[in-house]
Design a protein around this nucleic acid. Structure first.
Lengths: 209, 209
DNA sequence: GTCTATATGGCGATAGAC
DNA sequence: GTCTATCGCCATATAGAC
């Protein structure tokens, strides 16, 4: 019964994705995944022989999707300003829908670095294809900034406040969840503004330092 | 024998701190802590009845120290520029020595939010005492930026690249650990530059948006 | 206070009926 | 394919000798 098999496997994958992302490999329980998928625990082992295999399956699919999204943002002919705007907007939306994603990736990548090599290799993510054109474009548009600083600073400002939600929500917003969420949404414009202001400074420089 | 008791308890605390920070509450093993402290596993339970209690002890001490350091950075009479420089320099040094700290805090604070309330309350950390003077100072020095953006953006750029070390080291630096570390050190100056350039833009504005 | 030995419970994994 | 029952391991925690 192929029809049924696909359905069950999808239910398992969806449940596993949710539980793994929220609890991590160590914290996740096969029982919880089974419950959430509406099936029996031993059926999990029937479809994916071990927890490790199930995890690897979920993780590599995830990296693959992220790799695709990153690639799409690198079309040529788009100005730096529009790239920043598009990037920040897209990623804050994604992260608002998947608030556990940043911590999950950071953890698993620390726990088992080998998985990165494989997953990123399989997803065909090549940093040179990303940085080389960006460096040229920054130069061409007159911004004398290290492209790594440009990318990493922007990425940091997008991801960190979402990874640190429990702390910010409590310390900065006194437990007001709505205020926190509105603040994150407001960052869609404020991060772009901050980055573009900074870039102005680099425009005046003659050499990058 | 009080002398001995203090020594053993300190050895346990130091070992527990290292293991908890690297592996987290879930990943840490009482056996590993005992080994690292050079004592027996059951002696751990003699000093701290449960793993949870041992963890709470370590965690609250840690938050307390962080609270103190944050407070020290808020002396009056220091220019915004010097505060940024001092903050970035100090924190990158701390994080280079404790690379697991960011992920540890982010994780545990997600896993058990109650712990934050207690630990931060015990450490007497009051955000209003932090943000109110900073907001005034930013206004006084002519920077029309939301103080939360200012703090959170700077913090993000300091912490995130260290929390994301495994990814950056692999993807951006092709596995070259030395290059990664040198890059992080270079950020001590480049982050300050980036932030000050951005601030210049906010100086031209008449109202904060 | 510190040790050895052991209890207790949870979780991943398997056996086997249907 | 899906279930119930159970194994075997590992980690926390306790008992009890010294």
């Amino acid at each position: 019964m192929i029809e049924k098999e696909l359905l069950t496997e999808e239910k398992i994958a969806e449940a596993a994705r949710e539980v793994f992302i929220e609890k991590g490999m160590n914290g996740a329980r096969m029982q919880e995944i089974a419950d959430k998928a509406g099936i029996n625990k031993s059926l999990l082992h029937y479809y994916f022989r071990t927890k490790e295999k199930l995890f690897a399956f979920i993780f590599s699919k995830l990296i693959h999707r992220i790799g695709d999204k990153l690639g799409n943002l690198m079309e040529e002919g788009v100005s730096i300003e529009n790239k920043v705007t598009g990037f920040v907007d897209l990623y804050i939306d994604i992260l608002l829908k998947n608030p556990f994603l940043p911590n999950f990736i950071l953890n698993e990548v620390t726990r088992n670095p080998e998985a990165i090599f494989e997953a990123f290799a399989a997803a065909k993510i090549d940093p040179q294809k990303f940085f080389a054109p960006l460096e040229n474009q920054l130069k061409a548009e007159g911004y004398h900034i290290d492209p790594r600083d440009f990318v990493i600073n922007t990425l940091s400002m997008v991801i960190f406040p979402i990874a640190a939600r429990p702390i910010l929500e409590r310390i900065v917003f006194n437990g007001d969840k709505k205020a926190y969420k509105e603040y994150i949404i407001s960052r869609k414009t404020s991060i772009v503004k901050f980055v573009l202001f900074a870039l102005e400074g680099y425009k005046k420089l003659e050499v990058r330092s």
